[in-house]
């Protein structure tokens, strides 16, 4: 069975590397990690992942802006996106505009099983 492609976007390199290790350990996923929002857009266009985990607060381009660009690109607009956030709350979502108000999210710290359950529920 072909492995599903997952793109992890988070500015914390240690975090993205650990998730990659854990998800690939299952044998079900090919995981690519990006630590910058702009690089994530290029990776999404090239890879066409089955799901993107997207951090919200990133220094170069925040998660909201990344999502906005993904949605405005015909090649990436249908890729499911799940936010990974350390700060859960209405104000967190509200600040990033209406475009992400209906996005599912996971609150850090997350377990590998929570990630996988989320993948199963949201993957295309």
């Amino acid at each position: 069975m072909a492995k599903r492609k997952i793109l992890i976007v988070d500015d914390e390199k240690d975090f993205t590397d650990m998730i990659k290790l854990n998800l690939e350990l299952t044998g079900k996923y090919d995981v690519k990690v990006e630590n910058k929002g702009r690089d994530a857009l290029a990776a999404a266009r090239q890879l066409r992942p089955d799901l993107i985990f997207l951090d919200i607060i990133m220094p170069d381009m925040d998660g909201g802006a990344v999502l906005f660009n993904l949605r405005n690109d015909r090649e990436t607009r249908d890729i499911p996106v799940v936010f990974l956030t350390a700060i859960v709350g209405k104000s967190d979502r509200g600040d990033l505009g209406n475009a992400i108000s209906d996005r599912p999210f996971l609150a850090k710290p997350v377990t590998a099983s929570e990630l996988m359950e989320c993948i199963v529920n949201n993957i295309r």
Binding site: L21, I87, K108, V110
Partner: peptide
Amino acid sequence: AHEVKNPLAIILQGLEYLSKK
């Protein structure tokens, strides 16, 4: 919250990896 939860996230993923390995 941001500065503490990110390291916690790394620790948790690390623990899960070690548990399996």
